[in-house]
Design a protein around this nucleic acid. Structure first.
Lengths: 346, 346
DNA sequence: CTCCCGCCTTGGATCGATCCAGAGGAGGCC
DNA sequence: GGCCTCCTCTGGATCGATCCAAGGCGGGAG
């Protein structure tokens, strides 16, 4: 049953098929398929014979054929949000790594795609309809999560990294990091160091994540009987904004410490300190959020809230597996606790 | 020809097939296929009718079926190298974004995978044999490029981001950035500013990229009749190494400026300056390499060599297209020139 | 010894799109 | 009018793995 005599040559240019293996092992195609997918259905000696043939020929199942028949691609789609240069957001990078790593162990690969513009739904449609991916991992939840409703309506399996902020009874699996717990951790850390005037620099009010992180600061500060009045500022997530905001706060509220909603903003604070000849960690304490590369390499080290992205990835993949095994699966929603990486700035 | 009466319901849960479209438009399957892939083969009115049916049903070709038949997946594999925390390498991140973006326009998607350990070949094999990807983009060329020979031997199509340093007559398409030109640019910039004692901090000698970047510094310095003796240091790519090296150089060679092989090393220099109360840009000039996020957000801004990663991605994808159109295609090798982003540190 | 039950194994059908060879129809030329 | 060419469109076969229903075989019970 050689095709064009190709089996005669030993060049592994042509991939052997399941039929080739079957012929070589002297069994049927189905038996080979079982040897690969349900080994325990075969008698041990048959299994051994088939496996030997597989090894001899270097057989690897053809993905396209398998995908066609099983209606699954074993790919999960992840949309890369537009890059924002000038910010310190390395969180996405770390998450992608973790996700790729974890998916691999679960037998999945990660397919990256990007939207044309700011429309968060861009790109999902085609992949979904063409059955290119089995599921999505959704991450852009800075301002709520419009994708969730959209995907749900189309019965597309997905797991969100980020809570369904704007929809209390959303019924889809999600994993998130407790931002408030993170900033609370950070604020407590500063309180323990003796600071009593701790300022907050966060994001615009319509960011759910931003308000959540702010809540942690508020909670910790109030718990210690301190006031938050005049101690907070809400700005865009840029270094420049962080610099401006911290300058104003320093002049008007005289804080001795800053808790920021991001490392980017914290870097802005460091700028202000440098300009004024103040030393971070000695004169003024600063804490960021994300534990980005920037926090790790800047002098004298930026204390920062670190999200457990590896755990998030693991939880996401686990939910993905459940979801694909049981289409009706509705996750519980998992909230993970971040940690605080203390460095020179506090 | 309705299956299980499903076509009767309007729920788009089941994807319509090419046969469904054909039936609705009153033509054959092949005609629909042509309407999608070779529209100019159809008579205008037929084409219009088919397209209408496609729109009505919301038909999108099934990827798995197409892949099986055409023996192409329209996916390119990209291996994520292990993360190195504590370094400022954001170059990969930017490149991935650019690649995803550019690929999309060429009709390709990017499949991420990761190797178990440090073995750079890990992971390629399976994807290749299972025909999961059409080609690879290879990037880990810090120390030569063992993947190239391996992939070539298996006739796997790939394009490298990085020169085939260790194999002068390697015959595969590649794109790279002229690192030497970048450091030369950086060094000239410092020379123009009046610096005459410019030090180099680079990587260990067995890194081809490191030696290339060093060459640019050497060239520019010597061209100005200055000596490089005692002005260079080769260390690991960590902040700590950069700090140590710069401290030693400052004491022994008294440079007024540093050119570094990476932003990570440059950050190390900034640490030393901060410790000694020296101001980057005013007392000592510092230039990094990669124009990472760190360079952008640190105070007072780190001058850095910026790789044209967007252009690299475009060139890579173009080579990929040529390669897949003509399997025997042998690229020319394309060397792109980097730019210098000047900031406060110089 | 025969029959029945399970465990393996088998060959045909199938997933959905594309390749291929050829049919059908309109138009041009002699 | 007959014949040929060109253009459009058609139906069967195919890619390679898996699903399905049924066949073969061995062992135990009767």
């Amino acid at each position: 049953m050689e095709r064009n005599g190709r089996a005669a040559s030993r060049v592994p240019t042509f991939a052997p098929t399941l039929a080739d293996v079957a012929e070589r092992a002297g069994v049927s195609r189905q038996t080979v398929s079982n040897a690969v997918n349900n080994p325990d259905l075969l008698r041990p000696d048959t299994l051994a014979r088939v496996q030997e043939a597989i090894a001899d020929l270097g057989y690897v199942p053809n993905r396209a054929a398998r995908n066609l028949r099983t209606r699954a691609s074993h790919l999960v789609g992840l949309r890369l949000s537009p890059v924002q240069e000038g910010t310190a957001n390395a969180a996405m990078d770390r998450f992608v790594h973790s996700l790729v790593w974890t998916s691999r162990e679960a037998g999945y690969h990660v397919l990256l795609f990007s939207g044309e513009g700011p429309d968060p739904l861009e790109g999902y449609e085609d992949l979904l309809r063409s059955t290119a991916v089995d599921a999505f991992v959704v991450t852009d939840t800075f301002l709520g999560n419009p994708q969730a409703a959209w995907l749900r309506e189309r019965r597309a399996p997905f797991v969100a990294f980020g809570r369904p902020w704007d929809d209390a009874d959303a019924r889809h699996p999600w994993v998130d990091v407790d931002g408030a717990a993170g900033t609370e951790l950070a604020t407590r850390h500063l309180l323990e160091k003796g600071h009593t005037r701790i300022a907050w620099i966060g994001w615009r009010k319509d960011s759910f994540i931003g308000e959540d992180r702010r809540a942690g600061w508020t909670r910790a500060v109030r718990e210690h009987g301190l006031s938050t009045t005049g101690m907070a500022s809400r700005v865009e997530d840029t270094v420049w904004s962080g610099r401006e905001a911290s300058a104003v706060l320093l002049d008007e509220a005289r804080p001795t410490a800053f808790v920021c909603a991001s490392d980017t903003l914290a870097m802005g604070v460091l700028h202000t300190l440098a300009e004024r000849g103040l030393h971070p960690g000695r004169d003024i304490a600063v804490v960021g959020f994300d534990d980005s590369q920037v926090a790790q390499v800047v002098h004298p080290g930026l204390t920062s809230v670190r999200q457990p992205l590896e755990e998030v990835a693991i939880a996401v993949v686990r939910a993905l597996e459940d979801l694909l095994a049981t289409p009706s699966y509705v996750g519980e929603g998992l909230l993970l606790a971040p940690a605080l990486t203390v460095r020179g700035s506090s």
